[in-house]
Amino acid sequence: MRNPEPGRPPRPNDLTLANWDRAPHNRWAYQHISDFLPTVPIASGEPMALIAADTGLDLAALTFTDHRGDRVNAAAALDGSWTDGFLILHRGRVVFENYRNGMRSGSVHLTQSVSKSVVAALTGILHQQGCFPLDRTVAAYVPELAACAYGDVTVSQLLDMTSGVHFPEGMADPVSGIGLMDIAVGWKAAPPGNASPRTVRELVASLRRLSRPHGQEFEYRSMETEVLGLCIEAAIGRRLADLVSELIWRPMGAEDDANFAVDPEGYAIADGGLSASLRDLGRFGLIYARDGCANGRQIVPEQWVARTRVGDPALFPDRYRADRPNGAYRNQFWIADVGAPVILALGVYGQMIYIDHQRDFVGVKLSTWPRAINPAMRIDVQNLMGTVAEVLGAD
């Protein structure tokens, strides 16, 4: 197959719904979601300039401590972690920017669950406007969901993923949890004879089981964000992509249109459907690094950002403590250590926004790992970011 764009990998001839998000096909697919899946645009506006800073940062000369406790080279870590884009912002300036695998400035890349953090930022804005109370239940916003397991879950519980709804996040099961969601959003074909729901709304309405009382503990479930998105659209009467454009993307000075993949009903896939450019994800990170401000304006309420940084480790069960012994989850962001100033937006296959507000530091890494989840590699990238932040210093 002839490559129409020199330097950019061609579309795999055998790309299918079954393999597009798996290696090696994800190396192409994550930068071309709109070429084979339905999407809706998130319009940009007048861009906020990002100025380069000459700090002399040399990743080839920098080492950090990896998950084994060994000192490793930062540049080699990028080489070995299927990097597509890597960006460092310090004090609002570009310190390091690197593109690989055919990606370039302006390319958009699937962010997977980083999408959740953007939807949470939108929630904070709407809440401050007084049109989206957090103590209201799902049924209050979407009456048709009153009979399902999410009916009496509050928006606050969705944000912190503390509902008791039974929805396993296992990646491999096509007939439960995230496997059903992949079918409902149109990312995977249903197995022969499978009568599972074919839209997000239908899937939510079909859920009936509880694993525990609501509010008792954190459990990572992408469905919480999908339900949050349904509530937002019902409360405001507008599509999620248009709200993100109007209230986040344009105000923060995004320079590139982003997009949301949509389900067969046209509903934006809130938990993982956002594709955006490297620099615009950096701009989004600046909002949280700077108490909700970016591009000379308050975009997300300061109180919302402050609340996002403070999680409750008592809600964090043991199964999440192996690599986050003092961790928490708040407002659709991960807190690796409740005693540290760092929050993270994370997505499978190696997507990360690392935000340290004390150092006015934002790091973004877009990747296409061969495996969806790789805790060791995630820790290494996180430690690399932390080391670069320390080298650059506090604001």
Rank of each mutant, 00 (worst) to 15 (best):
R378I: 02
Y150I: 08
D312T: 00
R68W: 09
T123Y: 03
G164A: 02
P168M: 05
W187C: 11
A306R: 15
V262I: 14
D312I: 01
F316H: 07
C231I: 12
S206T: 11
E255H: 14
I51H: 13
V391M: 12
P375L: 06
P197A: 08
I51D: 13
E169T: 08
E224A: 15
R71I: 05
R212W: 06
F260G: 08
L278W: 05
L15P: 03
F218Y: 15
L62N: 04
K365L: 02
V388W: 09
R371M: 12
P4G: 11
R250L: 10
S222Y: 05
G151T: 06
Y354I: 04
A23K: 07
D21V: 11
M223C: 06
A53L: 12
L122Q: 02
A306W: 05
Q216T: 15
P301T: 03
V227Y: 14
Q157V: 02
G327K: 04
G177C: 07
R201W: 01
Y99H: 13
V300I: 04
E255L: 12
W249H: 10
P317E: 12
Y30T: 06
G229Q: 12
D312M: 02
Y329S: 01
R91L: 05
Y354N: 07
D160N: 13
I335S: 00
W369I: 04
E224N: 15
G296W: 05
D35S: 14
G102K: 03
P47T: 02
G106D: 00
V391K: 15
V175I: 12
A314C: 11
I353Y: 00
E246T: 04
Q31C: 12
D360G: 04
L159Q: 10
G347T: 00
D54Y: 10
S113I: 02
D271L: 10
N194M: 13
P12C: 09
R371A: 14
L17M: 13
M223K: 03
Y329I: 02
N26F: 06
L392W: 03
Q332V: 00
R68Q: 15
A322M: 11
F361Q: 00
E390S: 13
A389I: 03
I379L: 15
V244L: 11
N194Y: 15
H127P: 05
P4M: 11
V362R: 00
P38Y: 01
R321N: 05
I88M: 08
D263K: 07
V165A: 09
I343E: 00
S34G: 14
H166A: 15
A61K: 14
G296A: 09
Q112M: 15
C231F: 08
I178S: 14
A52Y: 08
T83G: 06
R221N: 08
H90P: 06
S107E: 02
A345I: 01
V338Q: 09
V138N: 10
R279K: 14
G272Q: 07
R198Y: 04
N331F: 00
D21K: 14
H127K: 12
N101E: 15
R309P: 00
L392H: 09
G285T: 07
A340I: 00
G327L: 01
P133I: 01
D263F: 03
G266F: 04
P375I: 07
T55L: 04
A189C: 10
G347L: 06
K365A: 07
Y30Q: 08
V165G: 12
S211F: 08
A190K: 09
L122G: 01
Q303N: 12
A49D: 12
G102Q: 03
S277H: 07
V95L: 00
A140F: 08
